[in-house]
Amino acid sequence: MSAEEGAAQSRLGFQLGPDHISFDLDESAYPIDAVYGACYLFIDRCYVYLTRPAEGRVGVRLTAQEAASPEALDALAGEFANELLAQTLRNKLSQSTSRIREYYTAAALRAATSAPSVDDLLAELESEELLEDPLEIMVPWEEKHGDGQSSTDPDSKDG
């Protein structure tokens, strides 16, 4: 990551303007999807503008939406840099696991959208009712209050 030429340097070596901070990135180290991912997280906080200073490089300019000190602009760019690193790692992990994800997503989709029979659905519902307290935290109402056969329990409705 390098600063643009021709202006005062920020503490972190980015180029500082009166209301903006700029730097450029090497696309071979930071894939464009990671750059976009980081930009997206910043577009509600500042104005983001991208340029192509040279083949394989992306210029990033972050402009504050309100007056900002050089320290604040530095901090903004520092945060962007951290996010960019995280995005780069996510991107790589996403690529290296793409086949795994394709497999389980397709399998889950098949299972979740297969047309169920009414009996299947009823069995599912039954099992959910049995699991009504999946974490076994609640003392059952029946245990606390006798037989619990109140006809007014919504779960005891017909059907």
Partner: peptide
């Protein structure tokens, strides 16, 4: 600036 954000 706002327009550029929108395009991005």
């Amino acid at each position: 600036h706002a327009f550029a954000n929108h395009v991005l």
